[in-house]
Amino acid sequence: MHSIFARLNNSTSLLSSCLMGLLFAISLTTFLFNEEAHGQIVPASVKVLDARLPRQRYRTQEAVFTQFNVTADLTPLFHWNTKQVFVYLQAEYNNSKGVQNEVVVWDRIVRRKSDAVIRTRAMSKYSIRDLTRSFKKIPGAHFTLKYNIMPYVGVLTSGDIARTSELVTFPAAQRAVS
């Protein structure tokens, strides 16, 4: 009855259930922190290029390259259960066929509170392409800065930081300088 094995068994099962309870409680506290991050995005440059994209099936197509001045303060998002914050800038537009598009153009992973104040020129890491391969009939796009929080344990949360107030217009396509 009171063998070493029984004692070991009991204590490990108690320990593991305590640990599970603790982790569950920690993951619940995520819901207590609901501070919002604030920021601003200002378009600096928007170019439509007749691009050759070697990895795409349609090799020649128009692609939009953007630059934004991004300022954001993510420090309110860092609490004791924040492992990292994934910040990303996305374009939202509808094309002439009614297709609703959301395309991420820039992203950054913030892992420390000391890096949480962002002041940068966000050059497009990913170009915007359209299913129709052309941006002639698309007047422009709205851009939104969003975040996605990875916890140490528990639920993933996400939200918006900033949005352009006016439509960011796409200029006419220009030949890519090769």
């Binding site: 994934f86 009614g98 297709v99 609703q100 395309v103 990913y126 996605n148």
Partner: peptide, 29 residues
Amino acid sequence: YKTGDITVYKIPGADIPIVHRVMETRDTP
């Protein structure tokens, strides 16, 4: 699905599912 979501997907013929983030969504009516 929305951009920023982390999804797990399995391509037919591939043996293991992949965990990656959605970067583009195209919603065709």
